[in-house]
Design a protein around this nucleic acid. Structure first.
Lengths: 202, 202
DNA sequence: GTCAACTTGGCAGAGACTGTCAGAAGTAGT
DNA sequence: ACTACTTCTGACAGTCTCTGCCAAGTTGAC
């Protein structure tokens, strides 16, 4: 299995690529539909596979875990995050850089409705939240060197401050998105994020 | 099953209570030993049960999940946390109250070595971290009303600020404990916690 | 001693996930 | 078009966590 193909711009777009793209999308849509219809825990892999018209084995080849069926391409989240922050001007402070990263990631969702649906599922399903938090932790670790550099700390040292700053930013994003869901998607998450950060750093 | 007995101070201390206490301890020690010896993921429930001299079924009756085998009595963590914060004087600020809670929880570990062992396992095992984070999230929710009251916010409103503050405190605790583990348990976690908070709120 | 309350172990089974393997389907060389 | 090669798929069996159920044993209260 070598799924690197990723539909590059001037793609060769072999039949395999297109087929995989299609299957992947079909699985993803079926999963999201069933999750919202009957809940995450109440939906089995077997059911998703059946309704998507593939075998369980194939489903697991596309998405390594059940959690991966939500959140689509989470790899991109981390990528966009680190890229955006890395591109911030050197004179920008840590918090400005982190804010820019958060904004970029939030802009990644297809639509407000889809984002709301995903966030709602995420915040209401314990088993999902756990996996999501863990994945986010990996993003945080990836961000560490960038933040350390901006804070003037020795990169890779045992200095906990950079980690605390990054984790705080995510904590605020979490609080903001939860409030956003509670408000049924009214308003802007980024505004809520700013509000949270102000409350913390006040 | 009614395991409420919990060896109250002037306990009746029936034979059942003592037996359960013993079995629980035996299981816990066996689990921690095997986890540190061969890793969390590489240790199966079957093995723990066998070496602890109980059936798998009984093991699951004592500890609902594999994760529960680490962290001992996590219920107490949340209890101590909310109790301590609730007992703080009204004129104490949010951050002082939260710090007191954190200190109380940290004081709960039996020994420095055991705490170090647990933290190390926790931070190095992805599957464990996920569950731990999720459990912590529940503590955070429990704390919410207390913090909201102290911040003068409408309790139960969609105000994300209290959630952000609580999450930030935990984020700092996380960063502090990770640095502590990296330093092989040298120094005081609470000092690191203060350092983190200063970096965030600085 | 009797009976109720409690505890235990074994069994069967669900559900997520993995390794393996034969075979189908696409791709490329001639 | 024929062949050789790579890629993908489905099926099967198996592992591991976790749950429901039931029969048997132990303890406690009277």
């Amino acid at each position: 299995m070598k799924q690197e193909g990723r539909t590059a711009p001037g793609a060769p777009a072999t039949l395999w690529d297109r087929t995989r793209q299609l299957a992947s999308q079909e699985i993803l849509e079926t999963a999201l539909r069933l999750f919202t219809e009957q809940g995450y825990d109440e939906t089995t892999i077997a059911q998703i596979a059946r309704e998507a018209g593939v075998s369980q084995r194939t489903l697991f080849r596309y998405f390594g875990t059940k959690e991966d069926l939500l959140g689509g391409d989470q790899g991109r989240f981390g990528q966009v995050l680190t890229d955006t922050i890395g591109e911030q001007p050197a004179e920008a402070g840590v918090w400005e850089a982190l804010r820019a990263g958060v904004a970029a990631v939030l802009a990644l969702h297809d639509s407000r409705e889809q984002a709301l649906e995903r966030f709602r599922l995420l915040h209401n399903t314990a088993s999902l939240r756990a996996g999501w938090l863990e994945k986010r932790l990996r993003f945080q670790e990836d961000l560490l060197p960038l933040v350390e550099a901006r804070m003037g700390a020795a990169v890779g040292s045992a200095d906990p401050r950079a980690r605390a700053v990054v984790a705080t930013a995510f904590a605020c994003l979490d609080a903001a998105s939860m409030a956003w869901v509670d408000n049924d998607g009214k308003g802007d998450i980024l505004d809520l994020y700013d509000e949270c950060l102000a409350a913390v750093r006040g």
